[in-house]
Nucleic acid binder design. Structure first.
Lengths: 159, 159
DNA sequence: TTGTTTTTTGCATATTTATACATTTATTTT
DNA sequence: AAAATAAATGTATAAATATGCAAAAAACAA
């Protein structure tokens, strides 16, 4: 999807550069071949939980706040070890298969991201049941997972 | 001074209440007998380093950013599951300690990378023995591990 | 497929926030 | 004390951001 790609690009740019207005970000995105309007950007930034913070020099800077929420529990990102094997949907829930023994880690990590979309998770040995909040579609959860675990979907499709 | 009192009041209100616009804050201040204009407020908020963050329900909230800054601007980002605890070398071999129950899958992953430098691995519950090929130095294995699991060494040193 | 529903997006604009400039208030110097 | 300097503030407005609504795109169902 177009949006997912944009969300990821936004996060990347914000991490790497000093962005202080949405127009500035807009131009950067164009430079990467991704284009949208300021309105869409505003919505995306809200969805990503991106904060605008005045730094010590008196300038404003956009900054990911995902880290903020999750630092306490989980300061790391799980996107290297290919632990996730498959994702199946059933009854509005999401069942995530991992390699043996890794459901718990992974669920703990997903919880740590503190995403609103996810009500909670239950993990066995190699299977996680992910319960989305009421009103959240599985599609939204997918987007959300892509944010938490960039590349996750590509990884699965590859198999 | 008038300003100091106001700055303190602003911090207090922001900590205690869910403030999402400056006008809202303005009214709260009036309720406390402190009055100024939105312009002044904007300046004060910048001086205090107060961030405006979209929370997970999609609302905006002003928030003191002292806590935030350290993490938000931190240049260091780890990218792996923190399963590996330690690496010790002995007799030309490498002993890798993981958190309980994770030796097997980590070893499986290392094997999966198919690196020439690594002859093979043997895993227990929380320990992996990694056997380098003849002629490969431990230094080379380190480099190799860094390729397979970027950031692994930083992670260990941090502990 | 075609029709139906949901999600995403742009446009236009409202809302919100930041700032240039002038004025007042406080602080320092003589 | 007055004069000089610096800091804080309000006014008006510019700049930036958010959002209602309609259209387009995507996902879904029959």
């Amino acid at each position: 999807m177009q949006k997912t790609k944009r969300l990821l690009a936004i996060e990347k740019i914000i991490e790497e550069a000093h962005i202080s207005t949405q127009d500035e970000l807009l131009k950067r995105l164009k430079g990467k071949g991704i284009s949208c309007t300021q309105a869409t950007l505003s919505r995306n930034l809200r969805q990503l939980g991106v904060a605008r913070i005045p730094d010590s020099t008196g300038e404003y800077k956009y900054s990911l706040s995902e880290n903020i929420r999750s630092t306490a529990n989980s300061p790391v990102k799980l996107n290297i070890v290919p632990v996730i094997q498959d994702i199946v949907e059933a009854k509005g829930l999401m069942v995530i298969k991992t390699i043996p023994g890794n459901a718990s880690n992974t669920a703990f990590f997903i919880d740590g991201a503190g995403r609103y979309e996810i009500a909670g998770t239950i993990a066995g040995d190699d299977t996680i049941l992910l319960i989305p909040r009421d009103g959240i579609t599985l599609q939204q959860v997918h987007t959300c997972l892509e944010i938490i675990l960039p590349g996750i979907h590509d990884q699965i499709k590859k198999k």
